[in-house]
Simulated assay, not measured.
Amino acid sequence: MINTWIKSVGFGVAFGIWALGSAQAKPLEVVSSFSILADMVQQVGGDKVVSTAIIGPESDAHSFEPRPSDAKTLQKADLVLINGAHFEAWLPRLVQSAGYQGKVVEAIEGIPLRAYEEEHEPGHDHHDAHDHHGHDHGEYDPHAWQSLAHAQVYVKNIAEALIEVDPENSVYYSQRAKDYTQAIQQLHQRFVEDFARIPDQNRTVVTSHDAFGYFGQAYDIEFLSLLGASNQAEPSAKELAGLIDYMRDNHVKALFMENISSPKLLEQIARETHAKIGKPLYSDALAKAPHAASTYLGMMQWNGEALLEALEP
């Protein structure tokens, strides 16, 4: 079902804009900071761009350290796209190392950011939470791509950036962005309807780290994170006990690990609370093809379907 829907959308977008394409001797070299953004660039840029991700599929952005090969990649770029909101703390070092002097565009520009509120989550100490988030991402959640509504702003910013660098193909980029935005909006509307059917008592889940707050805002789902904003820290015994007690008291039945996280802690919690571990969710990185979550739209549909499967009565 997932693959069929995504393939049909992809074919419709490609066919609808095929007639607008024109020969281009040299496609734009567009470098994006991570795989999700690179796929969005590819969907908007089509055959007019070569879209490259510095942090590839199934890779953890939280532990990433630039390599010499990344500097070489940046040196060839006509345009660099990043998320912004302190998601790429390593970027200034890489830009300096590469000597890149071209345009750097923040795809998150214009999106109202969600303030981290880990201090309100069960088992978390206010002081520890503040220090943890400040160390990792700052005070605001950078994972705005987890909202399909916000993703439409990403697409707009990407299209504008491509048009600024390559104005001759502005009609091409604009049409692709329009078609892609329509596909994103269709999936969003479907999720609005599907998640509206979830009973109030089933609207809480536990995930590895705090990456799904924007998804939760969109569809009224409460996400409790085990590791806060990072996959690198370990929760204290007090935090872990607090979360387990909260899950028992509130009958939280669903746990989700992520494709970039270790399952050990969630497996421990599942044993103690008898909660069910759902399918892996994709947070900061796409799956490797040919997985259904190897594109942004595929990833969002995979995550939504996995959550609905666990939460529906």
Rank of each mutant, 00 (worst) to 15 (best):
I36Y: 03
L187D: 07
A211K: 14
L240T: 03
E119Y: 11
E118C: 06
D39A: 13
N83T: 14
S294D: 14
L307M: 14
I17K: 10
D141L: 06
A196S: 10
W145E: 15
S261F: 02
L148P: 02
F34E: 09
N157Q: 11
V44M: 06
K7N: 15
Q146P: 00
R248C: 01
A177W: 01
Y282P: 02
S262L: 09
S208Q: 02
A237H: 04
D249I: 01
K276M: 08
G213P: 07
A25Y: 08
S170L: 06
A53I: 11
F256A: 09
I260R: 04
Q185I: 07
F215V: 01
S32M: 05
S97L: 11
Q75E: 13
Y140E: 03
Q232I: 10
A23S: 13
V31D: 02
V171W: 10
T295V: 08
I260V: 12
R203T: 11
K26I: 11
P199G: 10
P199H: 09
K76S: 05
Q96W: 00
D136Q: 15
L307W: 09
F212V: 00
A38G: 05
A293G: 15
Q152L: 08
L94K: 01
A107I: 03
D194F: 04
A89C: 01
F11Y: 14
E121R: 00
V44F: 05
A149V: 11
D136Y: 12
K103D: 08
A183K: 05
Y180E: 06
N169W: 09
E139S: 14
T181E: 07
A61R: 00
L91D: 00
